[in-house]
Amino acid sequence: MLKSIEKNNLSFVDPDPIDTQSKTNLFSNNFFNKIKKNKGAIIGSVILLFFIITSALAPIIAPYPVNEMNFDDSLQGPSLEHWLGTDEFGRDIWTRMLHGGRVSLLMGLFAVTISGTIGVVLGVIAGYYRKLDIYIMQFIDILMTFPSLLMAIAIVAVLGVGLTNAMIAVAISAVPSFVRVVRGAVLSIRETEYIEAARALGVKNWKIIGRHILPNVISPIIILATLEFGGSILSAASLSFLGLGAQPPNPEWGALVYVGKSFLSQAWWMTLFPGLAIMLVVLGFNLLGDGLRDALDPKSK
């Protein structure tokens, strides 16, 4: 889905766009101070922490077994016994959402890890080895023409329906943005004097990349990864909603909405809460991503 592509609006003025040294370091106090002042980032982190902790503890805190059917309790509205109601088989929605959160968050994590890894490798190659740049970028341009969801749907059509395939599809469709961002960042560092100097001294390319380039492009990667994390969860949920992702009885959030819509006008809770969870988590990632950008990379676009 959408990434925020707005310009940063804070008025930190960085006189030299190539001077990477003055950028906020990820682990400095400055960074934490800036993050602390950013309300959005705080709210985002709180939302995410809530979902991460509850999902992690799902087997312990879930009040009911996740897949056990109890036909007598089917389609009950929210109550003290079932906080968020029950589904058509009498399964507790809150329980299923806790377990579904693990699936959704892990899917996002895997998708970002895969697309991030591929994207960073390709981006560094394109940015550093200028001869390959044009080929890689032409390829990425071709991939970029497909909106990510459309591409994910096409890939699922090839690989077949299912959770793993949906995850791979989402990951592939997120690769182009990583390549672009990483390449841009590498390009801006590559021409700096100390890299030139290192090269002149005959330092091996992989050493230059590993010691000097990667540490300096880590900030934009982290920002993008945060934003893509939310985007991937949303894409994966959309695939599940189209029936192309998680399979029953998997409680992935998009799949819960998919199942719930068959009961929309008689059991709205089956649809409302999982959708709300998707929205909150994606919002959390977007807020945090924005905050990170403000703190780490004040003049990025």
Binding site: N67, E68, M69, E88, F89, G243, P248, P249, V259, S262
Partner: peptide, 15 residues
């Protein structure tokens, strides 16, 4: 198949 009722039946068969 993707018929919702069949998907529900499959889950009962599963259990």
């Amino acid at each position: 198949d993707d018929d919702p009722a069949n998907q529900r039946a499959a889950q009962v068969i599963q259990s």
